[in-house]
Amino acid sequence: MPAPTISITIIQTDLKWEDKKANLRDLEEKILSVREKTELVVLPEMFSTGFSMNPEKLAEDMNGPTVALDA
């Protein structure tokens, strides 16, 4: 019996330093432009903020805007 398959899309992009709105807008555009069958989208580490030395300024709980997005 063959193993089940999953369709994965990997997105690599230039992140805007500490600019959540711009990063989320750019990634949303890229995700919505995927035309191939996709069941899982893999994003870069720190995709919403880029690496930062100011985590207290950028942190969110599980009800924050990044998790709340749905397309």
Rank of each mutant, 00 (worst) to 15 (best):
L15V: 07
E18S: 14
M46R: 12
S7Y: 13
E28L: 05
K37I: 02
V41Q: 01
I11G: 05
N54T: 10
V41E: 01
V67M: 05
A71Q: 03
K37Y: 03
N63S: 11
I8R: 11
T5M: 13
G50A: 09
E36D: 14
T38E: 07
E29H: 09
V34N: 10
A22T: 14
K30V: 00
E36G: 09
N63D: 10
P55C: 04
T38A: 07
K16N: 12
K20M: 13
I11C: 06
N54E: 15
R35C: 02
D19Y: 04
W17R: 13
L69Y: 07
E56M: 10
E29K: 14
K21A: 12
E29L: 08
L32K: 15
E39I: 05
E45W: 09
D19G: 03
G64M: 02
G64S: 04
D19N: 15
F47A: 13
S48C: 14
S52V: 11
E39N: 15
I6A: 13
Q12F: 01
N23Y: 03
E36I: 04
D14H: 08
V41P: 00
A71C: 03
I10K: 12
E45L: 13
K37L: 10
W17P: 06
V42P: 02
G50V: 03
Q12I: 00
T38I: 02
G64H: 02
A3R: 08
I11T: 05
T13C: 10
K57F: 07
T5V: 15
A59R: 13
P44C: 02
K30S: 04
N63Y: 06
G64I: 11
D19H: 11
Q12D: 12
E39Q: 15
I10N: 12
E29P: 00
V42F: 08
E56A: 08
V34G: 03
T13P: 02
S52H: 10
V67Q: 04
L69C: 05
E29Y: 06
P4E: 03
I10L: 12
L32F: 03
A22E: 10
P44H: 03
P44I: 06
T38W: 06
K21E: 14
F51D: 09
L24I: 07
T66N: 07
L27P: 01
S48E: 15
D61T: 14
F51K: 12
N63I: 00
N54R: 14
E28M: 05
E39Y: 06
L43H: 06
E28A: 09
